[in-house]
Design a protein around this nucleic acid. Structure first.
Lengths: 112, 112
DNA sequence: TTTATATTTCCACAACTATGGAACTGGAAT
DNA sequence: ATTCCAGTTCCATAGTTGTGGAAATATAAA
């Protein structure tokens, strides 16, 4: 991953509304969620959500497709993976134990 | 990790100069680097670097200590780990293979 | 074709962020 | 004490980002 795309991805996530939307999509898994459901979940006006989804989309962190009259958003998994990889790069090569989290079952507070 | 600190960390990294400085520190490992060396490596004026290091520091992504007349910066490993963990949360609980990168030896282009 | 629903685009305004020169502070050397 | 060196703080300025109402667009239903 290039520096530029990493910056775009990090910038996209560095904002409350977008980070929340992103996490909803992380949890929604492969089927994703329609914009309206996200707006409702976050309790923000549609214009505002649309602005933020566009930003996440520019960064490649979400994808969207029309589905009847709604538009369904899904997580951009590849980009997310690249980002995590990128952040860990080089650190891990010297000290894997320090930087990369493992998929640890019981560790996380899950976000609500 | 809380949403707020995640936003602070992501925001701190979402800027070219800071992301570069951060990566220098990732590669520098536990001994870190004095500010002057970073400024030189990034080729920016000290006032500008100072501004950015402060930002990284506010986010907990770097630590600093005076050492003679220079100030040595080191990676804030714990915070970095928390952030990676946070981004993977919930995704991993359903589909570990999708989200978390493993420490893969031959995969990375190393950043320069 | 008219009407309703879902979402986006447009726009203006306020708030925040980055840049770097100049002045300042802390520590070491003479 | 004075001078030098490393880094920080201060400040003005330019640029970027977030907000949400109103208007526009696309699809589906009556």
């Amino acid at each position: 991953m290039e520096l530029e795309s990493a910056i775009a991805a990090l910038g996209a996530l560095a904002q409350e509304t977008r980070l929340r939307a992103f996490r909803l999509l992380v949890r929604a898994g492969t089927e994703g969620l329609p914009a309206g459901v996200i707006a409702e979940g976050l309790d923000i006006p549609p214009a505002t959500l649309s602005f933020h989804l566009k930003e996440l989309s520019r960064a490649g962190l979400v994808h969207s497709r029309r589905e009847g009259r709604s538009i369904r958003y899904t997580l951009g998994v590849e980009r997310m993976q690249e980002l995590l990889q990128f952040l860990g790069d080089d650190c891990c090569q010297g000290h894997p134990e320090l930087c990369l989290p493992r998929a640890q079952p019981g560790t996380g507070k899950s976000p609500r």
